[in-house]
Nucleic acid binder design. Structure first.
Length: 900
DNA sequence: CATCCGACACCGT
DNA sequence: ACGGTGTCGGATG
């Protein structure tokens, strides 16, 4: 069934609205078969046993509720894990006046009068298998406009070579004004529709020669209160002011082509523009580095909601429902909302601020409508009402000058849109002041958030209620430039060199909210809550007397931009230490916990620090050999065939084993040349050329590489076992139940994509393969996005393992042989395939299970019942061992320090 | 010397 | 375009 047919169906449903049949009619409208619906009605498809509830597998969870309980109910239902087991795509509640729905997959929410549901028919299209229908078209207008603006921008820059002499500020303001005019003429901010474009077209030369003088003059007119003496075609333009047209700038020169494009821009329908998204897109126009992605770093609305809702919106909504019948309290709530400050210290073109603004305005509308309803029932009058929410409650800080201009502009546009909505929704009494002349703007400052004192941007006054939010830049320690490193030094003073750039925002934010009625939540790379970053970053933040109030565990960054940023993110909410509930969001589920630690799990605050030696009595783990040779000393089968045609090469060829080679069963080789053989080896042309290539590569490389240029016939490191070696891939899929490890003989050279234990007894292999260890490394190890990242310092050297006797070791050895035997039964399968969770052979699974039991018996006799229990036990053991260890090591350490 | 990391990188479909 | 899944080299301790 196509979308337009569905729309017709939904319209028909509304026209013949039938309370009893509503939910079934709705499903029918989306093409769910009659028989399914009959069985659903009869009850054998309805998985819910509660009266008034319909739970339809993978489709929806529906509930009819009393007025006033809507929000609470949907909130409860969306975290009802029993129902969510059946994967309902939507949760729907209604009192048959209003309908609330939530898309569990995307997190999008719908709030509509039930008789207007046809206007939102697209929301439920996933039922009809039309997944991204709504999304695909979502930003069509924004994109079209952005592309046109990009064209205009390009031509203006080419024609005005000196345009960047002032750093581009003049041009930024110019573009911002132009955008305002396009928007204003299409949304009745200007008195006559299309008057900007029409006037420009009629009163400028076709060759573009006087377009800039026209615009200069028009901008002056827009900044003048009394234009009665102006020429007739300018007279009609209103006074805009608001700072937007205050300063005199010089418009760039136009060509014939440029004039044509500006007219084409004007002919687009700008009323469709979403200020929240458009700003980010248009920002990409002036930032060529982002051009191809067209706003790839803007935060999508669902993701912004993930920040805003737990930070303040949910609580305000609860207040509203709590005082649903109490006009006095409702008025109080409006006054509270009108005082809230929202501050984004990395606001870009303002999309968090705009969404926050819109959401607060919508809540105000809802409250006012309710107040009216109550007063109406009491036959009380209701005077005209204006919004109390002001743009000046919104604060932003942004480094990029153009983005900061866009943020100011977009907030005005959002205000205009919300004023319209306000008047529409509260049709009899909601009033809005004229948008012109523009009054106060958002408090958006241009500057470096790491350097500036945030209280200068967003002052803290007594009785203020402040929410800090945003999506600050992420940059791993090795990707920061010199200036950013200096920023980090400025913020942290010391031990800043390995921190992610985003941590500066958390740190400054924590200091800002400390002891004040303020909270914060940022979207951040998930890296800062994994691996070494946790113990480097969080102790100093959580020392600021703040706690993690809520958190979203890792989800993949997506928006509708073309080139999505490749990163996985978390959301971390910080607040002053309190007794309030703490929530962890995992996908669409909510989890109430007693504490949220820096790994964003519900355990106690624990920090696992890197160690260079094992905590337990287990052999040393080494890194594989890093080649650092640009790939010139290594080759695969196809190349090998050619190389060995010269039999002299055979002497210098060795097998290599890296992560991918191990997991995907790939043969790979390298030249392995001892110093004393070098003279002979370079007589072979193939080898000689490769060594030269390595030298060139290293000479052009970084500091370390350059020091290695003189031994370009060798890898950077040259470690080998005497007999055998265990290899563990440094990076591997998180989908497997066990992190695969391999046993290789000494003919193999390990690569730095594996960790190795040289000449280890089999029980070490068993220990690495155990569920205990796998649980540990998933909890405390680093990740690549969500991939498992095995490192000796975090996973192996920190692992608490009891001292075991020879008999126990022998026991474990047997289980290890069992596993190796099982693996050998499937020579056609790669290790990666063998450990694919869906395809793991039964025998192998059983062998692993037996090993797990043997390993766990080393810890205690009572078997472990769950992974949670295993982890809890391990953390306790870890603390015990660390305490014992520090007691023993203390004297040594002090001496060492003195020696320095 | 010895790393853990990446607003990633790349492959296969 | 997108899900699936791991390289490689270096600034830093």
């Amino acid at each position: 069934m196509n979308a337009s047919q569905i729309e017709k169906n939904v319209i028909a449903l509304v026209e013949n609205f039938n309370k009893e049949e509503f939910v079934f009619d709705l499903l029918k409208a989306y093409g769910i078969s009659k028989t399914s619906i009959t069985r659903l009605k009869k009850g054998d498809f309805n998985l819910s046993k509660i009266d008034g509830e319909v739970l339809y597998k993978s489709k929806m969870l529906f509930k009819e509720v009393e007025s006033g309980a809507l929000l609470n109910t949907i909130d409860e239902l969306t975290k009802d894990t029993d129902s969510l087991k059946h994967n309902p795509r939507f949760v729907i509640v209604t009192d048959y006046k209003t309908l609330l729905a939530k898309d569990i997959r995307t997190g999008l929410a719908l709030d509509t009068p039930i008789l207007e549901i046809h206007k939102h028919f697209g929301f439920f299209l996933p039922w009809a298998g039309q997944e991204k229908y709504a999304q695909k078209n979502e930003n069509y207008a924004d994109r079209k406009a952005s592309y046109k603006m990009a064209k205009l921008y390009d031509i203006l820059v080419t024609e005005n070579p000196n345009i960047y002499d002032d750093g581009g500020h003049n041009l930024n303001i110019f573009l911002s004004r132009l955008l305002f005019c396009f928007f204003a003429e299409d949304t009745d901010i200007f008195p006559i529709e299309g008057m900007f474009t029409d006037t420009l077209e009629q009163h400028t030369q076709k060759d573009g020669s006087d377009t800039h003088t026209f615009l200069d003059r028009l901008f002056k007119v827009l900044n003048t209160k009394d234009n009665s003496k102006e020429a007739a075609h300018f007279k009609e333009f209103p006074y805009v002011n608001g700072g937007l047209f205050r300063d005199t700038i010089v418009s760039p020169k136009f060509t014939k082509e440029a004039r044509k494009i500006i007219v084409e821009c004007g002919d687009l329908d700008w009323s469709e523009i979403n200020p929240d998204i458009f700003g980010s897109m248009i920002q990409a126009v002036v930032n060529p580095a982002y051009r191809s992605g067209l706003g790839m770093h803007y935060t999508s609305v669902p993701n912004i909601m993930k920040v805003i809702e737990p930070l303040f919106l949910n609580e305000l909504n609860e207040e509203f429902e709590k005082h649903f019948n109490d006009v006095k309290k409702l008025n109080k709530l409006i006054n509270r909302i009108a005082k809230i400050k929202v501050f984004d210290p990395a606001c870009g073109s303002g999309n968090f601020l705009i969404i926050a603004y819109k959401q607060l305005r919508r809540l105000e509308i809802k409250i006012l409508a309710r107040i009216y309803e109550v007063n109406h029932q009491l036959n009380l009058g209701f005077p005209d009402v204006y919004t109390k929410i002001k743009l000046s409650q919104f604060y932003g800080l942004e480094l990029d000058d153009f983005a900061h201009e866009m943020a100011i502009l977009s907030l005005w546009l959002a205000e205009h849109q919300m004023n319209k909505e306000f008047v529409n929704e509260l049709h009899d009494y909601g009033k809005a002041e004229d948008i012109l002349p523009l009054k106060e703007a958002g408090n958006i400052t241009q500057g470096n958030a790491t350097r500036l004192n945030w209280e200068d941007t967003c002052p803290k006054n007594e009785d203020d209620e402040i929410y800090i939010l945003g999506n600050p830049p992420y940059l791993g320690s090795r990707n920061q430039d010199k200036e950013q490193k200096e920023d980090m030094k400025f913020v942290f003073l010391k031990d800043y060199k390995s921190l992610d750039y985003v941590s500066a925002w958390f740190y400054k934010g924590a200091k800002y909210i400390q002891g004040f009625n303020a909270q914060l939540a940022f979207v951040s790379t998930n890296s800062i809550c994994q691996g070494e970053q946790v113990s480097l970053t969080w102790p100093r933040i959580l020392n600021e007397k703040v706690e993690i109030g809520f958190a979203h565990q890792t989800f993949k960054w997506t928006n509708n931009a073309k080139g999505n940023a490749g990163v996985s993110v978390v959301i971390v909410g910080l607040r002053n230490i309190s007794n309030k509930q703490r929530l962890i969001y995992i996908d669409s589920h909510k989890l109430k916990v007693l504490n949220i630690n820096a790994y964003l799990t519900g355990g106690p605050n624990i920090f696992i620090f890197k160690r260079s030696r094992p905590l337990s009595n287990i052999p040393k783990m080494s890194y594989g050999n890093m080649p650092l040779e640009g790939g010139f000393l290594r080759f695969r089968d196809d190349e090998k065939d050619k190389i060995v045609k010269d039999v002299r090469t055979l002497k210098y060829i060795r097998n290599v084993i890296g992560g991918e080679e191990f997991l995907k069963n790939i043969n790979r080789y390298c030249f392995w040349i001892d110093d004393e053989d070098l003279e002979d080896a370079i007589k072979i042309p193939e080898i000689n050329v490769r060594i030269k290539n390595v030298r060139e590569f290293r000479e052009n490389g970084g500091e370390v590489a350059r020091t290695l240029a003189n031994r370009s016939h060798q890898f950077r490191y040259r470690n080998e076992p005497s007999n055998n070696q265990i290899v563990i891939p440094c990076t591997s899929s998180e989908g497997r139940e066990y992190l695969p490890c391999g046993y290789y003989d000494s003919s193999y050279i390990s690569l730095n994509s594996v960790q190795t234990v040289y000449d280890a007894e089999p029980w070490v292999f068993g220990l690495l393969y155990s569920k205990m260890h796998n649980n540990w490394l998933s909890a405390v190890g680093g990740k690549l996005e969500s991939r498992i990242r095995y490192s000796s310092a975090l996973c192996y050297n920190t692992f608490p393992f009891p001292d075991i006797n020879e008999k126990q070791k022998e026991q474990i050895n047997l289980h290890v042989f069992e596993i190796l035997e099982e693996r050998e039964k499937h020579p056609e399968k790669t290790i990666g395939d063998l450990y694919n969770p869906d395809k793991m052979p039964k025998g192998l699974k059983e062998a692993h299970h037996q090993l797990d039991l043997a390993i766990e018996r080393c810890y205690r006799l009572k078997p472990f019942e769950s992974d949670t229990e295993r982890l809890e036990y391990l953390f306790k053991e870890y603390e015990k061992m660390i305490n014992k260890n520090t007691l023993l090591e203390k004297p040594k350490r002090t001496r060492k320090k003195k020696a320095k």
